[in-house]
Each structure stands twice: as C-alpha cells, then as structure tokens.
C-alpha cells in the first residue's frame, strides 16, 4: 500500500447541507454553539467555555490557512508568523498604552496582512519544495526577530490585557465575540471561494500554466489570496491573544505552523469545512488523549499518521461519496 496524494474534491463542494437530516443537524450544531455559554455557566464548566473560545480561534486560523493550502495549492510552512504577529500586535499596543478595540483589532489584521504581502511577494516567485522552505525561512526570521526584542518580552513572551470595547469583556462575551468573528470570516470565505476570485484561485491551483494561458494573472491572484489568508490568520492571533491574555514566541514557531497544517489536513484540505472540522477534531483529540495518557502526543501522532496514510481526504472527505 502506498499513500495516495491528498486528493482534492472533484469540484468546489456545494457544502450547504441539502438533505433534511443534514439541515437539521446543521441547525442543531448552530444552536449548540450559540447556547453553549449559558449551558456551560449553568453546569459550572468554565474550562470548557475557555476551551471552546480557544477552538474558535484555531478554527479561524485553520480556515484561513485552508484558503492558501486547499484552494490555492500553496504549501505555506510559515503561517504561524501571521498568527503570532496578530497576537503580538495586541500585546505590544497594550504595552504602549493603546487598548481601544477599534484601533487594536484593525491594526492586528493590518500588520499580519502587510507581513503576508511582503513575504508572499518574495516567496511566490518560487515553487514546490522551495516555496515550503522559503516560507519557513521567513517564519524563522520573524520568530528570531521577535525573540530578540527584549523590551517586548523576548523569549519570555508578553502579557496581553484584553482590549476595551466599552463594556466588560469577560469570558462569555469573548466567546460570543469569537463566534461572531468566526461566523463573519467563514461567511466571507464562503462567498470568496464561490465568487470569481475563488474560481480563479482554484483554476490556478489546478493548472497554473493553463490558468495563465487563458488570461488569469497567476501571481497577483496567489498573492491576494496569500494576503487575505495572512490577514485572517492575524485576526485569529489577535483573538487568541485575547483568550490567553498572553503572547509568546511559541505562537510564531514552526511547530505552530505545522500544527495548523495538520488541522487543515485532518479536516480535509480544500474542503470548505476543513478548518472547522480540523480544529475541532484536533482539540477533541488532544483533550481525549491528554485525559487518557501522559504520552498523549504519541497517540496524536499515530492518529495523524493514520489520517495521512489512510484517509487523505480528511474528515470532510468522510461525508463525500466514494468515487
């Protein structure tokens, strides 16, 4: 047996549920995420509320990565950079005394987007393995750059007090904020992948030479997708900074990038719900193994190896009919 390539869906999947049972399931899931905080509050589960918020931030990051990895076919091994920069912007602005939400959040997204623009502009001139390696190289540069800035914590990381919205941003409020951001972002991504841009992006992924030959500006399309993905990953980072109220260079490290990639693959690369399924499944998997054994990472690794070798279409692929 050999590992098949990670197969992409035949067509951009029409992911809105069509059968009645599926619609009922989706509605139930939507209801569950909306009423989760009061339920968690009633049951006194602060830990699970916090875990859910964290998962939402990961969902956002993984979905953003899926745009370049799944829809764009660009294997970026440095997405932790944008995630970390988004988070660090929150912390650094707070340290400099800027905590107004309407300043901090847009700045986070902007910083991540600009970084993605600069890095993407260089990296997208290479292909294949070299693209993987050069995105990694830039990620390492940013990582070490941040580590050496002692006034912003260096290796120790930095506290990141939550921004001010004019109301108390407690854990429940943060959960709903995260839910809202994820919902809006997913909606945006949904529209995007089904609009002209998404079609063009997938055309470039499927056949770059052909795409150029019918008139698509390949480089610009890839770069714009890269920047959008970077910006959304930055948003995820800002969200995570609000959740942990602390940022550290580990958010920028390459294992973090690998972690995001794993979530996308686990979810099913190139399927719309890959980020959601992957991030949720990864969190569940980690919690599950963590509760069961000290050596939980071994089993996470085993599970992921099994996914890569046996179910290359990921979790989202489970719903697809076998060809």
């Amino acid at each position: 047996m050999r590992a098949p390539n990670l197969t992409l869906p035949q067509r951009a999947p029409t992911a809105l549920p069509r059968t009645w049972s599926a619609r009922a399931g989706a509605a139930l899931a939507a209801l569950a995420v909306v009423v989760f905080p009061p339920v968690a509050g009633a049951l006194d589960w602060p830990y699970y509320l916090s875990l859910a918020t964290k998962t939402l931030a990961l969902v956002l990051a993984a979905s953003a990565l899926n745009l370049v990895l799944g829809y764009g076919g660009m294997v970026s091994f440095g997405h932790a950079t944008y995630y970390g920069l988004g988070a660090y912007t929150v912390a650094i602005l707070a340290r400099e005394g800027v905590r107004q939400a309407w300043v901090v959040w847009p700045t986070s997204v902007l910083v991540a987007a600009l970084a993605a623009l600069a890095i993407g502009a260089v990296c997208l001139r290479t292909r294949g393995l070299y693209f993987i390696m050069i995105t990694l190289a830039f990620a390492q540069m940013v990582y070490y750059g941040v580590v050496s800035f002692k006034q912003y914590g260096g290796q120790d990381g930095l506290r990141a007090p939550r921004t001010e919205f004019g109301f108390h941003l407690g854990d429940v409020e943060l959960y709903y904020l995260a839910l809202g951001l994820v919902w809006v972002s997913l909606w945006f991504l949904w529209r995007l992948v089904h609009a002209r841009f998404g079609v063009a992006l997938q055309a470039v992924r499927d056949n770059e030479v052909r795409a150029a030959a019918v008139g698509y500006p390949v480089y610009r399309i890839q770069l714009v997708a890269f920047v959008i993905s970077g910006a959304l990953t930055g948003l995820a980072g800002a969200l995570m900074a609000h959740h942990t109220q602390y940022v550290s260079p580990a958010m920028l490290s390459w294992p973090q990038s690998g972690h995001f990639m794993f979530m996308v693959i686990l979810g099913g690369v190139g399927r719309f719900w890959a980020g959601v399924l992957g991030a949720v499944a990864m969190t569940v998997l980690e919690e599950l193994f963590h509760a069961a054994t000290v050596f939980w990472q071994f089993y996470v690794g085993l599970a992921l190896l099994a996914v890569v070798l046996l179910a290359p279409r990921g979790l989202a692929g489970l719903w697809e009919r076998r060809r």
Binding site: A3, M261, L304, L305
Partner: peptide, 20 residues
Amino acid sequence: RVYGADHLTQVLATFALILM
C-alpha cells in the same frame, strides 16, 4: 508508502513521526 506522494503528505506523515 509516501514515495511519489506530494510534499504535503510527506511533511505531515513525517511530522507525525516526530511526535511519535
């Protein structure tokens, strides 16, 4: 089993090996 597979598969399979 990962000969001939794409780089993404290989990166992830061997990343899983690192964890293990």
